[in-house]
Amino acid sequence: MSALSAQGLGKRFGSTWALRECTLDVPVGSVTALVGPNGAGKTTLLQLAMGLLRPTTGELRVLGLVPRDDVVAFLPRVAFVAQDHPLHRRFTVRDTLKLGQKLNPSWDDDLARARIEHLGLPLDRKIAKLSGGQQSQVALTLALAKRPELLLLDEPVASLDPLARREFLSTVLEVVSETGISVILSSHILADLERVCDHLVILSHARTLLVGAIDDILAEHRLVTGPRADAASVARGSDVIRERRTERQTSLLVRSNAHVYDARWEQHEVDLEEIVLAYLGADAAPVPERELDGAAA
């Protein structure tokens, strides 16, 4: 069973597609980073997964269930921390925990109280009086004490300072290693997520550009550099993600399992950040087909 599997999933708001032809599969037990620029469709995908939105096209199953169809069976198994972790500002910390207890049959009150105590937050403090980092921790506590099988985090650290960012992600890591739950978390900055994730989904302009396990992605992608004239022959055997040319040489970031057996071409490993930037950069300014043809001529 997949934590999340989508087939041709699409969501349209008015005449704008926020997500289009999205097909992906996230295995149970994985920690998946959902990366893409602002407006790429990350929030839409997570809200679809939580059942906050209904798909316009395609099919989506989360933990084997259709999110909006059987909410009573579905909701207790999935937790969600929305962007900017909105909490009830007029509530106290205690009220917020009580809300979790009243609204969740699977609520683990001991866990919630232990975490709040560990954070050193007074139960009587109003949410509005907490710092952004503390609010995000309370929101995460609310999500974790629900004892979900899948945790969805939408831009959980975007609004946090570096220290709070680190603390938040450490907590997520701890929970994953203790409980083995599946996590999908989004960010427009990969650096935030790289150290916690084992799977990657790149989204841009409402479409998925790359889906896979990070180890596989690293193994498949490499940078090859060689003489300018022969770029086309190399490109023929693999997908060129990004092409850079100087006066004398061409460097290609390619996705391929095939090796280039040509002494004039050098091959290098690339790190994840560069791969992501290559995909997003290529999507932002796609190289027209004709230009590649021109290189072949």
Partner: peptide
């Protein structure tokens, strides 16, 4: 207005 309904809707009660 504040989007806090999302917090409630992502607990275990149906909308």
């Amino acid at each position: 207005e504040h989007g806090t309904y999302r917090l409630d809707w992502t607990q275990s009660v149906s909308p």
